[in-house]
Design a protein around this nucleic acid. Sequence first.
DNA 1: ATGGCCGGTGGAACCGGA
Length: 268
Amino acid sequence: MKIATFNINGIKARHQALCDWLDDAQPDIAILQEIKSVDDAFPTELFEDRGYNVETHGQKSFNGVAILSKLPLEDVTRGLPGDDSDEQARYIEATVVGKTAIRLCGLYLPNGNPVELTDEGHPVEGGKYAYKLAWMERLRVRAQDLLAQETPFLMAGDYNIIPQEEDAKSPDKWREDALFRPESRAAFRRILNLGLTEAFRARVQAPGHYSFWDYQAGAWNRDEGIRIDHFLLSPQVADLMTDCQIDRDLRGREKPSDHVPVWITLDN
DNA sequence: ATGGCCGGTGGAACCGGA
């Protein structure tokens, strides 16, 4: 079973590139971020024609997540628990049944910039950085609950987190950025430390593997990348993993997203 | 060395991204 995560940066601008990649890479499941579309405007038929079931959680203009799956998607839920006032469409869950039933959690974690801190160094309440950190704590609680239920699960998506120096070409440029600040990385580690496996880093220790290159400043040509798209696996799912790779080449094609797909294979 | 973009909205600039 091949499962991919891909921040497509807008379905209207990317549906052709997305279909080309699906036809080529043939994932069984594609977990998408930044569809930037309401549910009704999502081109579901394009994917149904290719044998996928489609579940979306969209909103106008920004954010939006979706899951495409060649196997049925069961018990779909939308939104990250823990804050009923949060209206941003960044989270979706569904269960897919192979040899093991796996809960798929698709997420688009807030960027968090600009970083605003009080004189004491605390994130300014109501600011984007505080929203990011609070969202990460809600994600940690969700992971904790799924572990307590002993539900096999994976959390895949655009985490907007550079976990380690090895995950950026120029880490010094990111020191003060919400993607790499100590508070952000600590919040990510608190989730990992529940006992989850970060799929790519578990298989590849070398630096220099990225999943995002900015459109600006010739970042792709200079390989000024960062690795911010991740799979976190519960113990049962980690035991099933047979591969994890990044489809780097997509960034060099026509009309690319600024992210590329990351995928795992499971013996499931 | 420096600076360079893109998508969505809505019909021109602006917001948001990372």
